Amino acid sequence: MQQSVYLQTALAAARAAEDVIRRYWAEGVEVRLKADQSPVTEADVAAEQAIRQVILEAFPTHGFYGEETGRTREGAEYTWLIDPIDGTKSFIRRTPFFSTQIALMQGERLLLGVSNAPLYGEMAWAERGAGAFVNGLAVRTGEVTALADAAISLGNIKSLAQGEGWARLGDIVAGVNRTRGYGDFCHYHMLAAGQLDLVIESDLNILDVAALSVIVEEAGGVFTTLDGGAIGLETGSVLAAGTRALHTLALDRLRAD
């Protein structure tokens, strides 16, 4: 299916960021801490600037919400959601589990997503109504509907691991076939490709998963917050599954009294 000009621009922006990231990966970077004590590097800032240049040259009236530069043109019909290096800690520690996340939102509806993990060797993308792709090949989620047959991956679960949430998560983990912790972009790419069946995370933000939510949904999966809510700008958690039936089972256990 033909790609829209929006998706073409997002892919071009991801490739521009990849050029920057690969250069800094080879040369090394200095690390500083932001106000929230999370790390940021020159590579994060430069990659976001590269993305910003490509997107706003193409669509100067669109809003832009970047991890490093914040929001501009609030109230615009279209807003781009950008995390130039999602997984900065992995980048700093020289592991390939980091990615560039680019999504486009019209109003409150996410239209497309690009997730590029250059050192891991995967670029995934999706556009509403056009399917999901990894490295140019169409992907589909798996068909598992029972927890006993499911492979689950856990990401950031610090807040879920407190109070009753820990017992509810434990009930799910005890009931599945296999448990892993791939994290970041990786387990969402795997979910979209049918290599995993369920992903749970309790501590993230919309810039981490906006693009990935479109990719998983266009691959046939279900992508919500841990309480079953829709993905939006205030999203802080994820329950994603390859099938509606599996998502319902996991959601019921997370909501159990």
Rank of each mutant, 00 (worst) to 15 (best):
A174Y: 09
E218M: 06
E108A: 14
N116K: 10
P118I: 07
N205F: 13
E164K: 14
E164Q: 12
L154A: 07
Y188T: 03
G142Y: 08
L111K: 04
M123E: 12
A192V: 04
A130D: 08
A126L: 01
E218T: 04
A192W: 03
G183P: 08
D149H: 13
A192Y: 03
A211M: 06
V173S: 09
G121Y: 03
M123A: 03
A138C: 00
E127M: 02
V176E: 11
E122P: 01
P118C: 10
F185R: 07
L111R: 03
E164R: 12
I152F: 08
V134C: 08
I102N: 02
A117Y: 03
I206D: 02
V176K: 11
E108I: 01
N156G: 13
A174E: 11
R109P: 00
V209Y: 13
T141A: 00
W166N: 13
L160K: 06
V144C: 10
L160G: 08
A146Q: 15
L212W: 06
H187S: 09
T100H: 03
D171K: 15
S153Y: 10
H189L: 14
G142H: 05
L104V: 13
G113K: 07
L110C: 05
A211W: 06
R128G: 00
A132D: 01
I215N: 07
S99N: 13
Q106N: 10
Q101A: 08
W166I: 12
E164L: 12
M190H: 06
V114Y: 05
T179C: 15
Q106R: 15
V209F: 13
L207R: 15
S115Y: 01
Y182W: 15
V216T: 13
S202A: 15
A126S: 01
G121M: 04
G155A: 12
G129F: 00
S202P: 06
L137C: 05
G165W: 11
V209W: 09
A146F: 07
V214C: 12
D171L: 14
G183L: 11
L137G: 04
T145M: 02
M105S: 06
V134M: 02
I215L: 13
D203F: 08
L212E: 15
A130Y: 10
N177M: 12
G165A: 12
V199A: 14
I206P: 01
N135C: 05
V199Y: 07
L137E: 14
V176N: 11
